[in-house]
């Protein structure tokens, strides 16, 4: 397994190299590839079926929300981090499984869900209407656009309130986009100082291939075939180093990103998703915080 990590070149580094020779507009148009889009469009109608193809995502939701709020509670710097009244952005929100849970949380002031699939986002909007609390409180908003097309909110300045997000979440997103480095780069600009990026993806290891693709998709068919492509997985080390290389002391900005924690997680049949096992083996969650 270690061998796999060593000789496979870092996916984030590769894409970063590509990114430098690419104009921003091309990156924008390719935030999501057409075949990925088609795959998720096909899943739209069954997104909220608790016993359907997205069951594993539904089951993962408690782990996601507890990771977000437990990390904020455990590592918050009271002078810099807000604990409630949180403004959140959910990138790649899909049918809104996580987005709705965030919006129902009393600590959250507003959530914007972004997705590139019109069909999937329609499902999210329709499903939101099934909960009068979400409709009445008006905390939840969905936008059909790429992260690259989202206007960067204004930073706090003389006479202006901070408009950037407290939290940007990117759960199970990085392994589905052609240029994860550019996506991360953009996300970091949207976060206010003291704010967070929470991301999850899968390590590019033989074990991950075996569990997520061979067993999950081919053998047990718990996950729709074609959901994952192994070559797009990102190792925990790569993601961690991306923050170190790109975001530690960005010259001239005083900006500083700190990878606060990362945890490996696995799906245990009859139990659910649990934080368990090494962070560099299969699925993992990572939390990074912006400081200045």
């Amino acid at each position: 397994m270690l061998g796999t990590i060593k000789h496979s070149s870092s996916r984030l580094c590769q894409t970063t190299l590509r990114l430098t020779s690419r104009s921003h507009s091309t990156a924008s148009s390719s935030a999501f590839s057409p075949d990925e889009l088609a795959h998720f469009n096909a899943l739209a109608s069954s997104w909220w079926d608790a016993n359907g193809p997205s069951r594993l995502l539904h089951k993962m939701n408690p782990l996601r929300t507890s990771f977000i709020f437990d990390t904020i509670d455990a590592y918050a710097l009271p002078s810099k981090t807000r604990l409630s009244g949180l403004k959140m952005l959910d990138v790649g929100c899909g049918g809104g499984i996580l987005t709705e849970a965030l919006a129902r949380n009393p600590r959250v002031e507003s959530v914007t869900g972004l997705d590139m699939s019109e069909q999937v986002l329609e499902i999210a909007k329709k499903h939101k209407r099934q909960d009068p609390k979400l409709v009445m409180e008006q905390k939840l908003d969905y936008k059909l656009c790429s992260l690259f097309d989202l206007p960067v909110p204004e930073a706090a300045a003389e006479g202006k309130d901070e408009q950037r997000y407290d939290v940007v979440t990117m759960f199970e997103v990085l392994e589905h986009v052609p240029d994860p480095s550019a996506l991360l780069e953009t996300a970091t600009k949207l976060v206010r100082p003291g704010g967070w990026i929470f991301a999850s993806t899968v390590n590019r290891t033989a074990a991950a291939y075996l569990t997520t693709i061979f067993v999950g998709e081919d053998l047990l068919r718990m996950v729709p075939k074609g959901t994952h492509s192994w070559s797009k997985y990102i190792n925990e080390k790569e993601l961690r180093e991306w923050f170190i290389e790109h975001k530690t002391s960005v010259p001239g900005t005083g900006e500083h990103w700190d990878v606060v924690t990362s945890k490996g997680c696995i799906y245990i049949p009859f139990v659910g998703w649990e934080f368990c096992g090494p962070r560099d083996l299969g699925n993992y969650f990572l939390a990074a915080r912006r400081l200045s």
Binding site: A50, N51, R55, H58, K59, N61, P62, T65, S66, E100, A101, L102, A103, R104, N105, V108, D131, F270, G272
Partner: peptide, 21 residues
């Protein structure tokens, strides 16, 4: 209680399945 804390819909079948399990 757990569902309320996490912001889940307490009528969500996935949530209720924990009780059954």
């Amino acid at each position: 209680e757990r569902a309320v804390v996490r912001g889940a819909d307490i009528g969500d079948e996935v949530v209720l399945q924990e009780y059954w399990a």
